[in-house]
C-alpha cells in the first residue's frame, strides 16, 4: 500500500469535513476520490499532501508515518484545480522550480526539464509565461512541475475542473496514457462520475465526510454498496422500493406478465440512439431507457399498457427506510 490513511477526522469550526476516514491506496495505480462538492474529498487529498493537518488519525506514505511532516518533506507532487502557476516565471522555470530548490546541477536540470517538456508536449512553449498559455497547457505545465521532483505519489485536486468540456475530455484521456507511461501512484479528486469511471483503476466514493465505498469502476457500478453510490454513479429510477438503472428496466406489451408491474406509457422522448420511456404504474413513474431498435420492436405508443420489470441479474438497491417488497405485491392496475 502506498498511501495509508487511518482514522482521519477534520473539522472547520462547526463543519465536519472528515469523520474517521480510513483508506488504503495501492502503489502504482490511478485512484479517484469521487463525491459531491463539500463532501470532504479535497480535504482528504490536502491532508495527504500536508497542506492541511488532520485533527485526529494518521497518514502514511510509502510506509513512512507522514502525519506530522510538513508538505515539503512528504515527497508528493500536487496539482491544483486553478493550476497555481508561478506567474512571474517561464514555463521552463516553473518546471525547474523543485529541482532548483534541491540545488541540482544546471545541466541536469536542463536535461530533466527538456524531458518533461516533451512528455507534456510543451516543447515550443518553454520560454513563455503562464499568462500566454491556455488552461489545458497551464495544467500540463503544472503536472510536469509536480513530476519534476520525482514524487512518491502524485495528487491532483479537480485537475480538469476549470477547463471546458472538450479539453477536459482530451486531458483525462491523456492523463490515463501518461499514467500508463510513468506509473507513479496517482490520486485525483473529481465530482464527475464519468471522469472517475473512465480514468481510474480504483474509486473511493466520499460523501459527507465518510467513505461510502471503495472498489474498481466495475464493482462500484455493478455492486453499489448503498443507494448513495447507486445514485451518484449514474441515472436511477425507482420501481416499487427498488432503485434500478433505467437501462436495466425491461418493458413488454400488455399486462399479462405475472412477474411484472403493469403500467401505462406516459411519455416517450427520443434522444439520438436512445429512447426514454416513462411508464406510470399508478403510484410512481418508472423511467426506462431503450435503444431505438428495442423500442421499435416493442411497438407501443403513449397510452399503451405495458409490463415493467427489472432485467434479471441487474444491480438493484433498496430505497432506504423501506421494507423491500417484490414487484408482485405492488397492485397492478
Amino acid at each position: 500500500m502506498s498511501i495509508e490513511v487511518t482514522g482521519v477526522s477534520k473539522r472547520f469550526g462547526d463543519f465536519v469535513a472528515l469523520q474517521d476516514v480510513s483508506v488504503s491506496i495501492p502503489s502504482g495505480q490511478l485512484t479517484a476520490l469521487l463525491g459531491p462538492s463539500g463532501g470532504g474529498k479535497s480535504t482528504l487529498l490536502r491532508i495527504i499532501a500536508g497542506l492541511e493537518y488532520a485533527d485526529a488519525g494518521t497518514v502514511g506514505i510509502e510506509g513512512l508515518d507522514a502525519t506530522a511532516l510538513p508538505a515539503r518533506k512528504r515527497g508528493v507532487g500536487f496539482v491544483f484545480q486553478h493550476y497555481a502557476a508561478f506567474k512571474h516565471l517561464t514555463v521552463r522555470r516553473n518546471i525547474a522550480f523543485g529541482l532548483e530548490i534541491r540545488k541540482r546541477p544546471k545541466d541536469e536540470i536542463r536535461r530533466r526539464v527538456d524531458e518533461l517538456l516533451a512528455l507534456v508536449h510543451l516543447e515550443q512553449f518553454a520560454e513563455r509565461l503562464p499568462a500566454q498559455l491556455s488552461g489545458g497547457q497551464r495544467q500540463r505545465m503544472a503536472l510536469a512541475r509536480a513530476l519534476a521532483v520525482e514524487p512518491k505519489v502524485l495528487l491532483l485536486d479537480e485537475p480538469f475542473g476549470a477547463l471546458d468540456a472538450k479539453v477536459r475530455k482530451e486531458l483525462r484521456e491523456w492523463l490515463r496514457r501518461l499514467h500508463d507511461e510513468v506509473h507513479v501512484t496517482t490520486v485525483f479528486v473529481t465530482h464527475d462520475q464519468e471522469e472517475a469511471l473512465e480514468v481510474a483503476d480504483e474509486i473511493v466514493v466520499v460523501n459527507e465526510g465518510r467513505v461510502e465505498q471503495i472498489g474498481t469502476p466495475d464493482q462500484l457500478y455493478d455492486e453499489p454498496a448503498n443507494d448513495f453510490v447507486m445514485r451518484f454513479l449514474g441515472p436511477v429510477t425507482q420501481l416499487g422500493d427498488l432503485l434500478v438503472r433505467p437501462h436495466d428496466v425491461a418493458l413488454s406489451p400488455g399486462a399479462d406478465d405475472p412477474d411484472a408491474v403493469a403500467g401505462r406509457v406516459a411519455r416517450v422522448v427520443r434522444v439520438g440512439f436512445e429512447v426514454r420511456v416513462e411508464v406510470s404504474t399508478g403510484e410512481q413513474v418508472v423511467l426506462a431507457t431503450l435503444t431505438r431498435t428495442e423500442f421499435l420492436r416493442l411497438g407501443v405508443g403513449v397510452g399503451a399498457t405495458v409490463s415493467v420489470r427489472v432485467v434479471p441479474g441487474a444491480p438493484v438497491v433498496a430505497v432506504p427506510g423501506s421494507v423491500v417488497r417484490s414487484g408482485l405485491e405492488v397492485p397492478a392496475r
Binding site: A49, F78, A84, F86, G98, I101, R145, A146
Partner: peptide, 25 residues
Amino acid sequence: TEQEQAAQSLGATAAQTFRRITLPA
C-alpha cells in the same frame, strides 16, 4: 495561497517560498 502551497509541496522552505514566489508576486 495556492502558488505558495505549490512551492512548499515542491520542497521550498518558508523562506524560499517568500523570496522566490511571494515577493516577486
